[in-house]
Simulated scan of single mutants.
Amino acid sequence: MEFHVPVIDITPYVCDGNEEQCRAVAKQLDEAARTVGFMQIVGHGVPQPVLDGFAGALDAFFGLELETKQRYRTPPISNRGYSPPKSESLSLSLGVESATRMNDFFEAFNVGTALTDYPGLELPENDYAENIWPQEVPDFRAPVEAYFAEAGRVARTLTLAFADALDLPAGYFHAFTDHSLDVLRMNNYALPPGTVDLDGDLIGMGEHTDYGIVTVLWADQAPGLQVLGSDSRWHDVQPADGALLVNLGDLMARWTNERWLSTMHRVKPPIVNGTIQRRRSAAYFHDGNIDAVIDTLPSCVGDGSKYEPVTVADHIRTKLAGSRLLQPNTKAGREAARLLAAAEPPPGRY
């Protein structure tokens, strides 16, 4: 069967469509979640000026000298600030030891929900750390916060549709996400000459599944993103015009007992004339409340749950310990097995 990431128009959920229209969208989401785990979302309502301002903010920050960007590097446990090239290994979030031979060459800057966003709640400071903002780019914060708000709106809209698609009560996921641990990770792959060795094993971002509930991805229309299909082969994916790429995370796969897929993916930007082709992306991770317990939905238990209940805190911290602290995850056996069974594309593909 040909690999295909469907384009789904969520306008009925954004603009108060009628029940029939929403039901049709929910059916499409269910089909995509069961068969691919990725989808192209249009009708999301994110204004183009917000996207343009956000892209400009990314360019301004990543265009700074590495020494300047390093000033904003924070301890990995806080998941805020700057991550320099080759400081992370996403495959270790799956416990795959071979990934240590070369860390991923992307650089990133993270912002997220903070303690001050949820006054009155006693939340762990490391998980809900305050954001830091680069002083050298005074026009960085406003456009990033504007896009953060829009991406969060899209993620929450999708969870409303997910409840319908899974035959759950309206707004079912709200109780699990009303102080959600959300992070926006801005990524850059166009690194200066000499930053990395351009060899055959070059990985922009290693093989991984996302950790939380749902990911909303803005990206350049440039090659690089690859998704592992049900045929155990890697397939190239690029955003359609005006679309945001959306994929499901591990917590949603646990909730649905793998009725819905947390699909393996990676980034391998092509090399053109000895230079890594420019590619930018930004992933908004909607991960759920830190104290929420994720257990198989009653409608998805079937012959039994594939997973034990887990808190969002335990799951996310274990995954981050792999990718950022380089401590292999020993609790991702099902995901690691899928990765180890994957077939590589033919040599010279890139």
Score class of each variant (00 low, 15 high):
P12C: 11
E88G: 07
S230P: 03
A114S: 10
K27Q: 15
T311V: 06
G302P: 05
R334Q: 09
L92G: 00
H4A: 05
P49Q: 12
V196W: 10
Y350Q: 11
F62H: 02
D178H: 10
R324H: 14
E31M: 13
T35W: 13
I290E: 08
E67H: 05
C300E: 10
G95S: 01
M252V: 02
V137F: 00
L121G: 10
P143W: 15
A165R: 11
F61I: 03
V267I: 03
N257A: 06
F105Y: 13
N273I: 03
A146K: 14
R254N: 07
H286V: 01
T113D: 04
D9E: 10
F109W: 13
P119E: 15
R280T: 01
D9N: 14
N187E: 09
S299V: 06
G194Y: 12
A282P: 03
L90P: 01
V111M: 05
K331G: 03
R23Q: 12
L244E: 04
P84V: 13
Y172M: 04
A26V: 08
T195R: 12
G224D: 13
R233D: 09
L198W: 13
E20H: 02
A313G: 01
L184P: 01
C15P: 07
L244P: 02
I132A: 01
G322S: 04
P138A: 09
N329P: 04
Y82E: 04
A26D: 05
W133E: 07
G333Y: 03
R71C: 02
G206W: 10
R156I: 00
V293T: 13
G288P: 12
C22T: 15
G249F: 04
A163Y: 10
A222K: 06
L168Q: 02
S305N: 06
D250N: 12
T116N: 09
L297I: 02
D127V: 05
V183M: 09
A243V: 07
S78T: 12
V246I: 08
D241L: 06
D303G: 05
G56N: 14
P269F: 14
S83Y: 15
N329C: 06
G56V: 08
P49M: 15
L225Q: 13
A313H: 13
D167R: 14
A343S: 15
V183D: 08
V111E: 01
W218F: 01
W133V: 02
T215V: 07
L261R: 15
V154L: 14
A57M: 05
L326A: 04
G95M: 04
A283Q: 03
P328I: 08
H265Y: 08
H44M: 08
W260Y: 10
Y128G: 05
R185C: 05
G37N: 03
V50I: 15
W255G: 03
V301I: 13
F105A: 02
A32L: 12
Y284R: 00
L202N: 05
F54Q: 11
Y189V: 08
Q238M: 06
F38E: 09
F109C: 03
T263R: 09
V227S: 02
Q327A: 09
L248Q: 09
N257S: 04
P76W: 15
Q327S: 09
L181E: 07
